[in-house]
Design a protein around this nucleic acid. Sequence first.
DNA 1: TCAATATGTTAGGCAAGCCTAACATATTGC
DNA 2: GCAATATGTTAGGCTTGCCTAACATATTGA
Lengths: 136, 136
Amino acid sequence: MNLQESAEMYLETILILEKKNGNVRAIDIARHMQYSRPTISQQIKRLSADGFVELDSNKHISLTPKGRQIAEETYNRHNILAEIFIWMGVSEQTAFEDACRIEHYISAETFDCMRRHYEYERKTQKQVSKTDNRLD
Amino acid sequence: MNLQESAEMYLETILILEKKNGNVRAIDIARHMQYSRPTISQQIKRLSADGFVELDSNKHISLTPKGRQIAEETYNRHNILAEIFIWMGVSEQTAFEDACRIEHYISAETFDCMRRHYEYERKTQKQVSKTDNRLD
DNA sequence: TCAATATGTTAGGCAAGCCTAACATATTGC
DNA sequence: GCAATATGTTAGGCTTGCCTAACATATTGA
């Protein structure tokens, strides 16, 4: 299920907006991603044709199970990566921005190793402050 | 100096081939990157127009100072990222592949934090084996 | 109610970065 | 020396993913 970066971004955005607003319209996605309305319209059409989203009669967009799975995987990786970066001392904003780009390119293997490393370190050597700019 | 991923890849590849072979021809780049000869020809023309590489009368390609700087930065980040991933337990091949993609998207801030974290951990808790597949 | 505004879609365009086919030129081996 | 092979270039094409302009439709407020 190796989707393009852009498709993952759309699906993750839909999930985020769904959590925030309940329902999701194309215009909401356009504002959130800072893309034009036609761009969203086209991409939603594509995601719909490929079975990742559905539109109801009110043009409300929802994730299919298949789409939701990808959205949630992407969302989780994004957040966990950002959490790891923040733990390493990266500022919150940069951590989220970098995580957002990197999540699309990191393999499952590397992601798992980073996560395991992080969890292990947090458990064993809890209170070592090794950088100036840690947030926690 | 925010170059495209693809330009960074070409420059890094030229540096690698230069280290390996002494001189670099378009065909060497094509084989290494698995792209067609015309593609390399076009991209070298572009990199040359933008002042990142030069061609001599034998069609040997060399990096300008400006090009070399980017190539070396990219190369170093690639290797250090891979080293960190391997240290975290990622297999050598995956570590290099992931590093190769991620190096183009990670910010200086996040990269520095990862590097500092790695160096600190190596220094303080040298012999803790936390995963099965560590290489060192 | 109906004009103004908001939202969605269609059509057409553009840049990046690949490709193949065809041609041009350089190198090599008999 | 010359045919075969290797390398480089030109021309034209394709996909992805964005854009604007223009139009279609829905919603809202005086």
